[in-house]
Simulated scan of single mutants.
Amino acid sequence: MNLISQLTSSFQQEFKTKPVLICSPGRVNLIGEHTDYNEGFVLPAAIDKAIYLAVSPRTDNELHFIAHDLNETYQGSLTNLKPTHTWADYLLGVISEFQLAGHKLGGLNCVFGGTIPMGSGLSSSAALENGIGFALNELFNIGLERVAMVKLSQRAENEFVGAKVGIMDMFASMMGKADHVIKLDCRSLDYTYAPLRMDGISIVLCDSRVKHSLVTSEYNTRRAECEAGVRFLKTYYPEIKSLRDVTMPMLDKHLRDTEPLIYRRCAYVVQENQRLLDGVAALEADDIAAFGQLMYGSHEGLSHWYEVSCPELDILVEIARQQPGVLGARMMGGGFGGCTINLVREEALDDFTNLITKQYKARTGKDTYLHVCKIQDGTNLIS
């Protein structure tokens, strides 16, 4: 029995009614890391690893949730929404934000489960938030556009859950389009789709099995370093608002010799934005090999200029780079652990899997788990 059938069966057994079924995918980011909070560009896509939700409205104000994979339950009320510091907060936060925005809701039944590997950095929390928001919009005929739901998901995680995340994860999960990546302007939220023709090429994630132990503290430090660079440059260029407005000649003239650490951080962001724009041009020209080389450049910048990689991620990229049939590889996400993302020709996939598994184990003593992904549409109604 597949997961959707299991969720449907569990739902009908518990609530004695037929559910509405929703798929809300995880995401990858092809290029453009740590650019979002600097008002830059990102290039994510929704993938075929997802959260699935079975939902129905209730005739009262109660909320009944079942986390199928965890075999855990939550019961509460619309009239008393408080953080629980558990998985339930990702659903409660979205419900709270819908109510704060003035939308009238009723009680809700929900059973959910997923195929997103835990701790892989594929944004299972954003998928769950989008899924429940999409469900509320459907069940209670609220009529919100997708971008409005994305903003409510982000606010739920920022305010109710308490994680000050950017908008990329929710945006990619909700707005994804099969066979395309999203070029998202994190300043304006303007977006366009760029084709990602993956005939004969697989997206492969290699899990370093290293937990992101430093990511929160170092994330805050990197953000502060970027802001310090902008403040310094503003004395010369009052019109700049963020690193989005900064050029390499500005950095070379005013920061390279006086503030070498701040220079490296800012230079990475400026160069990464340009790599992304060059990458979109490569995709539009159907030049996936050129795009892959830009991914390698992104990893070099993340590792040596922004310094958010770790030895294990560097080793995974180094091994990938030596394998025939690998077009590009880089670390993905906040850093200090998690996954690398690799573009691998399908005829080379078996050799790549065998070699990277053996060599990574030999060099680190750790196993790596591989996940092959396809790009799919964003959050959607199954039935």
Rank of each mutant, 00 (worst) to 15 (best):
A127W: 01
G121D: 12
I51V: 12
T84G: 00
S123W: 12
E39L: 12
G40Y: 02
P19Y: 07
C23G: 02
E14A: 14
L105T: 09
S123L: 06
N38A: 07
S96K: 11
H103M: 15
L78E: 04
I132W: 03
D60I: 06
N137S: 09
Q99I: 09
D48R: 03
N80C: 09
V55S: 05
T86L: 00
S24M: 01
P117F: 04
V42M: 02
T79V: 05
A46C: 09
L139F: 13
L108N: 11
G106I: 08
V94P: 03
Y90W: 05
F65I: 01
L122E: 04
N29L: 04
S125C: 08
S125G: 08
Q12W: 07
L105I: 09
N137L: 09
Q13H: 05
C23H: 03
L105Y: 15
I142Q: 13
W87A: 02
D60S: 10
G93K: 03
T86S: 05
I132E: 00
S56I: 08
T115R: 06
S123M: 08
M118W: 15
I95F: 04
D60V: 10
D60M: 08
I132V: 04
I31W: 01
T17Y: 00
F112P: 01
V147D: 07
L100P: 13
F98T: 00
E39P: 10
T115N: 11
L100S: 15
Q99M: 13
Q99H: 08
N38T: 06
E33I: 11
S123G: 08
Q99T: 12
K16T: 05
D89K: 00
S96Y: 10
L128H: 03
G133D: 07
P19V: 07
G32H: 06
Q99D: 09
Q12R: 08
S124E: 12
A46Q: 03
L92S: 08
K16I: 01
G114F: 09
L30N: 10
M118V: 12
N80H: 14
A126P: 00
H64T: 08
V28Y: 14
L92K: 06
F98P: 08
F41K: 02
C110L: 13
I51D: 06
A127Y: 03
Q13C: 09
G93Y: 01
A46I: 01
I47S: 00
I31V: 04
E145Y: 11
E72L: 02
L105P: 12
P83R: 01
T79D: 15
Q13Y: 05
S120D: 14
L70Q: 02
E72D: 06
V28H: 14
G119F: 07
D69C: 05
I132L: 02
A54C: 13
